[in-house]
């Protein structure tokens, strides 16, 4: 317990000090990592903790990205209002799509989430009047306002701390969720759905809850990403973006919450640096996936936890 506390404090001190000291490119990469770490944790709630293998989370990433962009672009709403709109819209979509998908188990669930993803992607490509299609839409990032104080997201240091604070808040909320009785029920459903039902749990309701919570935090990362890039396009619904959290989660360790963050920390720098000089960089990700699946099927953090438990 004490060791864990020291580790948490150490990580926080490092993260806070890096905001000022990192070179520009690495700070930029860190900001991306913070945003995608939220996405990865959201996926872990759905797959790692509840066993629902979705192949279409980019739907919520894209919906929230536009949910933030459109109000700012057309009505010049402030940051907090537009972020709230983005998240509310994402939750509504989460409930509707979840209601349709969660009833279906196993392969049917995977297939319907792919169908959702492709449908939203094609709609986003087609409805150019709304989304800008493939070219996308750009906007001016609103200021971060706290009463009389305001900060600009055009300052990379501000963006660093802004995104970091969302990552930390998301981690704490999700950690609290999985440690609560609800979290234990989600694990119970992943372990044995029928058994959870026999104890008296409405499995559908809990699976839907996990789906919506995952959609909400995926949406948060999508909204933050559009805020960071000050842009969104149909590509934010691309199915490749639905594959990424699967890779982060499997490499880092499903059902660990920190594992998927480790996955992002390992994989995104690979893409960021190697992708610049080698166009076949994805083959490295593929090789890493194969290596992890064969030698560490529980993922890096999952394997580490296993070793600690055994010792």
């Amino acid at each position: 317990m004490k060791n864990r506390l020291i580790l948490y404090v150490l990580v926080l001190v490092i993260l806070f000090s890096l905001g000022f000291t990192l070179p520009t490119d690495m700070r930029s990469l860190s900001i991306d990592i913070f945003i995608f770490a939220i996405y990865a944790m959201a996926y872990d709630i759905l797959y790692g903790y509840t066993g629902q293998f979705s192949y279409g989370q980019a739907v919520f990433f894209g919906v929230a990205a536009y949910g933030l962009l459109l109000p700012v672009l057309h009505t010049n709403t402030n940051l907090w209002v537009s972020l709230t709109i983005a998240l509310v819209i994402t939750v509504v979509f989460g409930i509707v799509l979840g209601f349709l998908a969660v009833r279906l188990g196993g392969a049917y669930f995977v297939i319907i989430t792919i169908i959702f993803n492709l449908t939203f992607y094609l709609i986003a490509l087609d409805w150019i009047w709304l989304t800008g299609g493939d070219d996308g839409l750009t906007f001016r990032a609103p200021k971060i306002e706290f009463g009389v104080f305001s900060l600009s997201l055009y300052d990379p240091v501000v963006t660093y701390y802004f995104m970091l604070s969302f990552l930390l808040a998301s981690y704490l909320i999700l950690k609290r969720l999985i440690s609560s009785p609800i979290g234990k029920v989600l694990i119970a459903i992943r372990e044995n759905e029928e058994r959870a039902q026999l104890i008296g749990y409405n499995v559908f309701r809990y699976k839907l809850l996990a789906y919506v919570v995952s959609a909400l935090f995926t949406g948060l990362s999508g909204a933050l990403y559009s805020l960071r890039t000050r842009y969104a396009s149909a590509d934010y619904f691309n199915i490749a973006l639905s594959v990424q959290p699967i890779i982060w989660t499997l490499v880092g360790g499903a059902g660990t919450l920190t594992g998927p963050i480790v996955g992002v920390i390992l994989i995104n720098p690979l893409i960021y640096y190697i992708g610049v000089w080698w166009k076949h960089y994805l083959s490295i990700i593929g090789a890493l996936m194969i290596f992890v699946v064969i030698y560490s099927p529980k993922g890096i953090v999952g394997n580490l936890i296993n070793k600690i438990e055994k010792s």
């Binding site: 009785p181 234990k184 029920v185 694990i187 119970a188 372990e191 044995n192 058994r195 104890i199 008296g200 059902g255």
Partner: peptide
């Protein structure tokens, strides 16, 4: 629920 402890298995009920 194999991944849960004895206590967690009991209180989940």
């Amino acid at each position: 629920f194999n991944k849960l402890t004895v206590l967690e298995n009991i209180i989940i009920g």
